[in-house]
């Protein structure tokens, strides 16, 4: 049994806006073991990325998190900003969502890699230069000696992604949060990113929180899958269970909407962020809905190794 690296308990993040409090997600429980790849899937706006930023405590000033984020026996929410800053990059890294906007346009790629190395590994400039070049080479930038002094606008999107991947692990973090790393990439580039992430996790024994809505990428990379809907984790279990015999109607709907499964979309749209919905958040769109679903708080149910937040889910039920 692997040891738990990150354990999130009852995490709720809200944003204070002019319209009052808007909830990004509610009461999220999540565990990541050392070296495990956890896929967090769900549709746009369900709170996946905000969860990633909540772990790093880099929410905008009006965002507030409650609950517990236990990382290596410490509650991240209780740490001082200075300590938290030391954890970012060195303990928990982030692979940012948008590679083309996430590099500083006026510094060369090599300079940006070097500063990460110098910050985290405390090494001298000349050594850092060599180390940066090695890193670029490891992560597939061929002819990296030429790339070293180039600026971000001279690289393609895929190359920038590699540079960022190299950057995000310069501090040798134990946990990497990859925020939709395959967003907006074509098939070839997506496969490269998947290969890159697999290489990263294999070589460094690093745990990975993969935030994505690409089920194929998730199936490819992950050990464990958590499905998020409307700010709640609705199903959480081993990849072989969740993506093969899903228990929650939402997960079933997601899988049925894949082109190879017949392209059957879930009816209606996601309600965005509901205020105080009693009961199941998927109720309005669910095809198994019963009256009791809408009037009580749905608890997590454990079926085999999977946790599912649905009253009617049971072992035998299949599509």
């Amino acid at each position: 049994m692997a040891t738990t690296l990150l354990s999130i308990r009852g995490l709720t993040t809200v944003f204070h806006c002019r319209q009052g409090q808007i909830e990004a997600f509610n009461n999220v429980d999540l565990d990541i073991d050392q070296g495990q790849v956890l896929g967090l899937i769900g549709e746009t706006g369900c709170g996946k990325s905000v969860l990633g930023m909540s772990i790093l405590r880099l929410l905008p000033p009006n965002g507030v998190s409650r609950g517990q984020i236990i990382y290596k026996y410490r509650d991240l929410l209780g740490l001082s900003p200075q300590v938290m800053q030391r954890i970012r990059g060195a303990e928990i890294g982030l692979l940012p969502q948008n590679p083309s906007a996430s590099l500083n346009p006026v510094l060369s790629v090599g300079q940006q890699l070097m500063e990460g190395l110098r910050l985290h590994r405390m090494i001298k400039k000349e050594k850092a230069r060599v180390a940066a070049q090695t890193l670029l080479g490891c992560y597939g930038l061929r002819g990296f000696n030429n790339r070293y002094d180039e600026y971000p606008h001279q690289l393609s999107g895929g190359m920038k992604q590699r540079v960022l991947a190299a950057l995000s692990i310069t501090g040798k973090p134990s946990l990497l949060i990859a925020d939709e790393p395959t967003k907006g990439l074509d098939g070839v580039a997506r496969n490269q990113v998947v290969a890159l992430l697999r290489q990263l996790t294999r070589e460094t024994k690093m745990a990975l929180l993969l935030i994505t809505h690409d089920l194929k990428v998730a199936a490819n990379l992950c050990d464990q899958i958590a499905v998020m809907y409307c700010g709640e984790i609705v199903e959480n279990g081993p990849v072989g269970k969740v993506l093969v015999s899903p228990l929650h109607p939402y997960t079933q709907g997601l899988l049925a909407s894949l082109p190879e499964n017949g392209l059957h979309p879930i009816p209606d749209y996601s309600p965005g962020v509901p205020g105080d919905i009693q009961g199941c958040r998927f109720y309005p769109r669910c095809r198994y809905r019963q009256d009791k679903c809408s009037c009580q708080t749905i608890k997590n149910k454990r079926i085999n190794e999977t946790y599912v937040r649905c009253l009617s889910a049971s072992e035998g039920r299949e599509n």
Binding site: L58, I87, R88, A90, G93, S102, L103, L107, G116
Partner: peptide, 26 residues
């Protein structure tokens, strides 16, 4: 507000460092 500033924060850079090294040249 641009993303590279957020990215630098996730790599563990402090405020002064971000201002001098990343914002100033831009």
């Amino acid at each position: 507000e641009k993303e590279y500033i957020g990215a630098v924060q996730t790599f563990g850079a402090g405020d002064c460092y971000i201002m001098l090294r990343h914002l100033l040249p831009n």
